[in-house]
Design a protein around this nucleic acid. Structure first.
Lengths: 407, 407
DNA sequence: GAGTATATGTTCCGCGTTTAGACAAAATCC
DNA sequence: GGATTTTGTCTAAACGCGGAACATATACTC
């Protein structure tokens, strides 16, 4: 039951019906390919004639293509299968992180086309832009077979204004109101989209096409690494809020008097569950201590910690279990406030999921308001799936499949 | 950019375009009445012919009516004004609270038609249902001029399944999985809708037609009274979540080690800012103390406390200021997680808004992640506006104006 | 191997709805 | 009283769904 905004609405035009159904066909092909016109008509509950016309429109725009004739199930004419046309079209995803920057090339369906390449992040925006341009151009010329590039998606760990294409604030990069999209787009001659990495991760899961897991239209992505990034999907749409800053659950407090957080406040969830917090707990240091780690501990990662815990180091296990508990307590807040169908968790700590799940679940049950809450689906997203890069790619690929704005 | 759910979508039919535009016209008349066909056509950017046809459809269904001919602005034929037809049609709103139950009759536009009546809540569901039926029938026969009743909206302080029409859990009423809608509907012979009161309050603000304030499509309603109820509106739609339990910000913690909350957990926002918490703070009692208040303090309300504070009672002022600070800290969590365009606050504490606003704002700035956050619009909704009853009414009236589900 | 049954994909026409423009009605200005 | 302007209605064209017929292609049966 959505209210029509009487000051900003979209009237349905003569072609609106067509536009809607066209997008539905496109999405059905995306989700069910290979699929025949007849099956499309059945799924949509329209006559085959309508489906045929919609398909021929998409064919003429070469958004889809006719593949081989399929095998008939019973008797009768065999169906011609339709596919999203991702041949000779590619998308580039860029994940800028504090330490390194990653690049991935995929097709329009998000299928990985090469290896993930990376380089050290130069925090000078101009230098970074130049290096990105160089590497992207290199990639596109090196591999001619990947075809035309449809666009570049860039995700950044910070606040972004996607409309203006600017990074408003990225603390770990030291960026404040820097222009990123337009210089990149100008130098590459390609459309560029930028977005916050937490939001992009949520997008990636929303738009993922996996046969085993159906994407959830109400979900939250929680990325636990140096900080805690979150992205929220409501009704199949990314929750942006007034200033595109919605979804910062990392800075909702567990205890307002708790340890100091990188954001300046105290007791944020992030200050309890970030990798830094977990390691600090292990090394017995004050969580609020921001001094650089000494040489011994500088290269010690959460993965190392988990390895030690699995090897029987009780102190390591205790540190991880503690993080697990706080993780669950924070997830409970997300569940109480949003009641999502599913929560995705990414980040290094998830490699210990088998160890920590019972503790997370226990904390969850402790603080969720309803019994449902404690049973909320939790999906672990391993780092190998590159959720941020997938999200960057989705920024480019998804708009073509989105529902038209109407009413 | 909404994703089309490939397993649950709505194909656009031959009449879908018209359905959409019909609803737009209805909403424009609702928002701008009195308005002429020609003005509708201009607002919608369509030909007058189309607007005329849509209007005549609505006229034939007597959803709208033609009023007097308006005064011409310049020269030319004078416009015939159109209005939502709320003549001879009424809606009944019911607000069930732990202590008392309130009834309000309005027209389809939510205009109050009589006085708000109330009676002591009988916590036995059957008895309460019978009394409600008796009183509603009485009201409808007493005032013939209010016309046909379009339906009854009921709001309850607890978890509701609007689809099944059941109250799943209402702690203050002691209800657990009770059937409320169907018995009422059967006895009254009228459509009945039930919903959680916090969600209804948010609905009320979304659907309110006020010339001075434009409703916000991204807002949060926070109701501070015995407990803390919240309702969230995203993209002009009530946020329900998987089990219709979304929006329980009252049980997001400020400090997990804080005072015990009615929900069983500790340190919930509610445990810091509810009326009980404020009063307990004044009386110097442990916030976690659940013992019944003694005779002296039993009838002492937050309003009394505010009166004392305004009269110069330093202890009273301190108690209120403390609540104000916690209120701001909790609102910061809402802003960080949802970044709404506007927050509505209702409840007794708001009568002290002039006293507490600087403190609330200060706490807000302290914990919001961005500078925008601290400037989020806050609207006070006074009790006299009966936001819960308005919400109950909106449950009945709003569906007729809602956007069609498409794509 | 011919005939029959069944499934896919195309084509044609009907009808509802927007789009465009003409026209009548009503009011003001000169 | 005539010109001008605005409202509201009406008609024809274009568009796209709805329904059904038709051609095509395959498998089964005798």
């Amino acid at each position: 039951m959505r209210k029509i905004n009487p000051h900003d609405f979209k009237v349905a035009r003569r072609g609106t019906t067509r536009e809607i159904n066209r997008q539905i066909v496109l999405n059905l092909i995306r989700a069910h390919q290979p699929i025949s016109r007849a099956d499309l008509a059945r799924l949509m509950n329209v006559r085959r004639g309508v489906a045929s016309l919609l398909v021929s429109e998409l064919l003429s725009e070469s958004l889809i293509f006719e593949g081989a004739v399929g095998e008939a199930v019973g008797r009768g004419r065999r169906p011609t299968f339709l596919y999203i046309d991702s041949r000779e079209r590619c998308v580039i995803g860029v994940d800028i992180r504090a330490s390194r920057t990653y690049i991935l090339v995929t097709d329009l369906m998000g299928k990985q086309l090469g290896v993930v390449s990376s380089f050290q992040t130069n925090k000078d925006v101009n230098a970074l832009t130049q290096e990105l341009v160089r590497r992207i151009k290199q990639t596109l010329t090196d591999y001619k077979e990947i075809g035309v590039c449809e666009g570049v998606g860039v995700v950044v760990p910070g606040m972004v204004d996607p409309a203006l294409g600017r990074v408003l604030h990225a603390p770990t990069l030291g960026w404040r109101d820097v222009s990123l999209r337009d210089p990149l787009a100008a130098a590459l001659g390609l459309p560029v989209h930028i977005e916050n990495s937490g939001k992009a991760c949520a997008l990636a899961q929303l738009w993922a096409t996996r046969s085993d897991v159906v994407a959830s239209a109400n979900s939250v992505f929680v990325s636990v690494s140096d900080g805690v990034g979150t992205g929220v999907v409501v009704n199949g749409e990314l929750l942006r809020g007034r200033h595109n800053t919605a979804g910062e659950f990392g800075h909702v407090p567990l205890s307002i008097d708790g340890p100091r957080c990188s954001c300046g406040a105290t007791g944020c969830w992030e200050a309890y569950v970030s990798n830094l917090a977990t390691l600090s707990r292990y090394f017995g240091r004050d969580l609020a201590d921001a001094r650089p780690r000494d040489a011994e501990t500088a290269s010690f990662t959460v993965e190392d910690l988990i390895a030690r815990a699995r090897a029987g180091d009780a102190k390591a296990l205790a540190a991880i279990n503690s993080t697990a508990r706080y993780l669950g307590l924070g997830l409970a807040s997300i569940i109480n406030s949003l009641d999502p169908s599913r929560i995705y968790i990414g980040g290094e700590i998830t490699t210990a999921w088998s160890l920590i799940e019972p503790i997370v679940r226990g904390a969850l049950r402790e603080r969720t308001l309803t019994d449902f809450g404690g049973t909320t689906e939790i999906h672990i997203v391993p780092a190998e799936e590159h959720p941020r890069l997938r999200g960057a790619v989705a920024l480019v690929a998804a708009p073509a499949f989105a529902a038209p704005m109407v009413a």
